[in-house]
Design a protein around this nucleic acid. Structure first.
Length: 912
RNA sequence: GCGGAUAUGGUGUAAUUGGUAGCCACGUCAGACUUAGGAUCUGAUGCCGAGAGGCGUGGGGGUUCGAGUCCCUUUAUCCGCACCA
């Protein structure tokens, strides 16, 4: 019987569906394991061969865990709200709900062909009102809570109000936008609108007038992680800074906890590092500088208080609120001009021109609290309004930016740390001895920093302070295709809907552009008395992993029972591109729900694996310039040629299918070829997988040609999971050949199923157990490429072994990788259960043991590694051959091995 | 500029974590069976050399009896952050 993968695969996919094979329920009698993939955004282009990489890996792991006795939750869904569907709607008038529905159907069809073990009964879609009800619910909870720095958690806003009524802000230590100061009496005197204004300063979901990333082309604001190099991540359109009233999430309140939480997560060091950088904690001091002729004190933040003696000027950001106040009459014109000029510069220009020094003096002076010197205050855009206090103390001798500025404006440069040559450049290193610094002279930098902290606090100049680079997340988008905010307005006061009013459904509209007045599309809806912006893409994806635990519950996001059983995600597989977006927001969202007691784990994703990107491998043909003749790769040097992308699907092993090429496009219908060895060889290059490069490989095509099991194994065989690599269909034959060989193992020459019950030999058992051990270890380490290789080696070693005692465990072993073929063989053997109900095979150590082992020995004074000893060899016998090095002696000392366990000639353990 | 990662045959990769570098595949070459093969099977295949032999894990140096693996240095590529005080 031939290996008819089409027949086998459709048969088993149908059965799995009919029998609900992969349906999961909570089962307290069994240990749980939660394997999650980052759910896809269903785009119009469908899946290419790169998308399933992570899904296949997680599917193998899920099936493996299931065979190990775990109750495995492995769900899938769709991140269905988002910009592309809406952009498409604007162009075509097609409602996003319709295109999204179509795209989901297409995705599902593609996914089903690959044979995943998802529990589709738990599917979620973020655009489903029954789902986004809980996104809105979480938002309302955030609106109703603030973050108390003393209890280090979210608390009901009523607690804060009660505090205001009693003591005003006197005893408050809460996360806020700006520090407020008022008494109980002042609070009582405020109007309702004023009180709400104050509370917005503390709520975890709040509305504020802030500088935002505005993308005119997309007509919406964007969060920091949606902007890169001054361009929008989606679409690549310019982004400008603009002051607007927006909803925000106070993620900064959780900065420290999100930072601390990283330590215990099984994430890659590089991903943790990206998040640490994004949070950007820095420890420093807040210091107030007196301003000459004013009662005001200029507040700055510094991480180098040791260098205060070297401060020779101050700089404030152009957006600093005191710019007007600090500017003297004679400097007014120059300052105004400068600010006008910086406003015109886009974010992109500002980034591009970081080397250019610019600035202007305010005419005011501050006083260096340690030297007593009067120092000028400048305005310059190298100081950012958004970080620290938007003002700095400049130490040109020890900060390269201050140095460049001082050089440009001819300002004094005083070295206070010995070690550099300030004639040439600033000395930024945090090491050396202090000079020109009064009581700090002779001290080491580290020591000086500590002493200065104390001194600053003692003199009442300021205090220690921790600053974060992390910004609050802008949460509203001026778009249609997203979750509506459960907020209505009473004048300017935002009123939350009652929970019983949820979900607030997105109304149907037919025109998706912003209004003439530039308002979001929802402003077109007649009678819409709610907020007109919608929530951003990350809203729906922030808690979807919780919803999978209990997807049909209409009383709660997740029931206590389900949450306490499934707890959190044990293994999360997805791309690194979500490092500062989704993975930050999800952690914030989860910690918030944890504070409120709705979930029992503070961290949502315990272990995370980032699969690499699959790049495209493009093929080229070479047209002789001015003709319709195409010359093969090896001969192209002899002609003047033009390189043309050719569809990779009509090229095999870099050999062009000439007829297919002629049929590909009308202009090539009468193409002629200059061949080498009778074939046309194409050139190739690694590029991004995209339609325009004609290098997109569709998984459907691979499944059609080779079957899902081959696709699954080949994707794994391609290389280490976490590494980016190009897709190259060359080579898939090797994996397909292997599966055919595995299939034929069970049939005799006449094609009858022919497993026998003969007892396996020692050698065959050794091969089997070696493979079991290797494959199990590799799966645990996510080293799927080497486990596929192990299967191949196994078959090579076994030859034509048709013994049930060998083939049956191998079938179970291979099932996570190639489930269809495994199921078929399993059923032919007479098993009535599904192969996924079988226990994963254990290996028996005794089959791994050999009777001899090798040890490095000296032969004729030269080190060799050839000599074999019997297992019973004594230390004395071995030592006679060993060069008398310390290491060898140490190994022998008291180590006289009683038993040495050896795997195919290598020592794995010495039992004493 | 700062931080992280990677570098091994013609190609994708492997190496029991300091112990015979190149497993397993692709490709290539030779052979078998075939009317035929994009089927199947067998063998060869790191480089130089006729051979003995020599060289070989981006480059240079070091530790070690022994280095792809550890240390120092350097180069290239990729990724993240970037006027963050």
């Amino acid at each position: 019987m031939e290996y008819d993968f089409k027949e086998i695969e459709s048969k088993w996919q149908r059965r799995w569906k009919e029998n609900g094979t992969y349906h999961v329920e909570t089962d307290p009698s069994r240990p749980k394991y939660y394997v999650l993939d980052m759910f896809p955004y269903p785009s119009g282009a469908g899946l290419h061969v790169g998308h399933p990489l992570g899904y296949i890996a997680s599917d193998i792991y899920s099936r493996y865990k299931r065979c190990c006795g775990f109750n495995v939750l492995h769900p899938m869904g769709y991140d269905a709200f988002g910009l592309p569907a809406e952009q498409y709607a604007i162009q075509t008038g097609q409602h996003p709900a319709v295109t999204t529905e179509q795209n989901i159907a297409r995705y599902r069809e593609q996914l089903d062909k690959i044979g995943f073990c998802f529990d589709w009964d738990r599917e979620v879609r973020t655009c489903d009102p029954a789902y986004y009800k809980w996104t809105q619910w979480a938002f309302l909870k955030m609106f109703a809570h603030y973050y108390d720095n003393r209890t280090q958690q979210a608390e009901p806003i009523e607690k804060l109000v009660a505090e205001f009524e009693k003591n005003g802000t006197a005893d408050i230590d809460a996360a806020c936008t700006t520090k407020l100061d008022f008494t109980a009496a002042e609070w009582a005197a405020k109007s309702e609108a004023e009180k709400e204004q104050v509370l917005q300063n503390y709520r975890l979901a709040f509305r504020a007038d802030t500088m935002v990333n505005w993308c005119p082309k997309l007509g919406t604001v964007l969060a920091n992680d949606e902007v890169k190099d001054g361009l929008s991540v989606r679409g690549g359109y310019p982004v400008v800074q603009k002051r607007m009233k927006q909803w925000l999430l106070r993620v900064t309140a959780y900065a420290q906890r999100m930072l601390d939480g990283l330590d215990d997560l099984e994430w890659s060091e590089s991903l943790k590092e990206i998040q640490r950088n994004w949070i950007g904690r820095s420890v420093g001091a807040q210091v107030f500088f007196d301003i000459d002729g004013s009662d005001r004190k200029l507040e700055i933040f510094t991480t180098r208080p040791d260098t205060i003696f070297g401060v020779t000027f101050m700089v404030i950001a152009p957006e600093h609120e005191w710019v007007g106040e600090l500017t003297t009459a004679e400097n007014e014109k120059a300052v105004e001009e400068y600010i006008e000029q910086t406003k015109k510069r886009s974010e992109r220009e500002r980034i591009a021109e970081t080397k250019r020094v610019s600035g202007v003096a305010t005419g005011s002076y501050a006083v260096n609290p340690f030297t007593g010197k009067h120092i000028p205050i400048y305005v310059s855009d190298y100081v950012l309004a958004g970080y620290g206090t938007g003002a700095i103390m400049a130490v040109p001798a020890h900060d390269s930016r201050d140095y460049a500025f001082a050089r440009h404006f001819g300002l004094e440069i005083i070295p206070v740390v010995a070690g550099g040559d300030i004639e040439k450049e600033s000395y930024d290193a945090k090491e050396g001895k202090m000079i020109n610094s009064g009581f700090l002279d002779g001290k080491d930098v580290k020591e000086a920093i500590a002493l200065m902290f104390d001194e600053v606090e003692k003199r009442g100049l300021g205090k220690r302070l921790v600053n974060y680079r992390l910004r609050d997340a802008i949460f509203s988008r001026q778009r249609y295709w997203g979750e509506p905010f459960p907020i209505r307005y009473d004048g300017d006061i935002a009123r939350p809907l009652d929970e019983s009013e949820l979900p607030l459904e997105l109304p149907a509209i037919s025109e998706f552009k912003p209004t003439e007045q530039g308002e979001p599309p929802l402003a077109r809806v007649e009678g819409w008395q709610y907020e007109t912006s919608t929530m951003p893409g990350f809203a729906g994806s922030s808690a979807y992993y919780l919803r999978y635990m209990d997807p049909h519950n209409d009383k709660a996001l997740v029931s206590k029972e389900a949450d306490e059983y499934w707890r959190n995600v044990d293994l999360y597989v997805g791309g690194i591109e979500h490092a500062t977006g989704h993975l930050m927001y999800s952690r914030f969202w989860n910690m918030f729900l944890y504070d409120l007691g709705y979930v029992c784990e503070a961290e949502p994703f315990r272990k995370l694996v980032n699969q690499g990107m699959i790049q495209g491998r493009s093929n080229f043909v070479y047209r002789v310039v001015g003709t319709n003749k195409f010359v093969s790769l090896g001969l192209r040097k002899e002609y003047e040629t033009q390189e043309i992308h050719v569809d990779v699907n009509i090229v095999k092993n870099d050999i062009l299918d000439l007829d297919a090429f002629r049929a590909w496009r009308p202009e090539f219908a009468d193409a002629e070829f200059i061949l080498e060895d009778g074939r046309y060889v194409c050139g190739w290059a690694i590029e991004k997988m995209s339609k325009s490069m004609y290098n997109v490989v569709n998984p459907d095509y691979i499944v059609e040609q080779y079957g899902a099991d081959t696709l699954r194994m080949y994707e794994m065989f391609l290389g280490p999971l976490e590494q980016s690599k190009p897709w190259d269909t060359n080579g898939i034959d090797g994996v397909h050949k292997f599966l055919r060989k595995f299939w034929r193992l069970c049939f005799d020459r006449e094609g009858n199923f022919a497993l026998n019950d003969e007892a396996p030999t020692e050698k065959e058992l050794k091969t089997l157990h070696k493979t079991i051990k290797k494959v199990r270890e590799d799966i645990e380490n996510f080293s799927f490429n080497t486990s596929v290789a192990a299967f191949m080696i196994c078959l090579n070693e076994l030859g034509e072994c048709r013994k049930r005692g060998i083939v049956e465990p191998l079938t179970v072993l291979i099932a996570p990788f190639a489930p269809h073929i495994a199921e078929e063989l399993w059923s032919l053997e007479g098993h009535t259960t599904s192969v996924c109900d079988a226990r994963y095979p254990e290996y028996d150590e005794k089959y791994l043991v050999e009777s001899t082992f090798e040890y490095p020995v000296s032969v004729n004074g030269k080190m060799r590694f050839k000599k074999q000893y019997p297992l019973t060899a004594t230390a004395a016998e071995i030592s006679a051959d060993i060069v008398a090095t310390d290491e060898a002696q140490k190994w022998l000392e008291g180590a006289a091995p009683k038993k040495i366990i050896v795997v195919v000639g290598k020592i794995i353990n010495i039992v004493k």
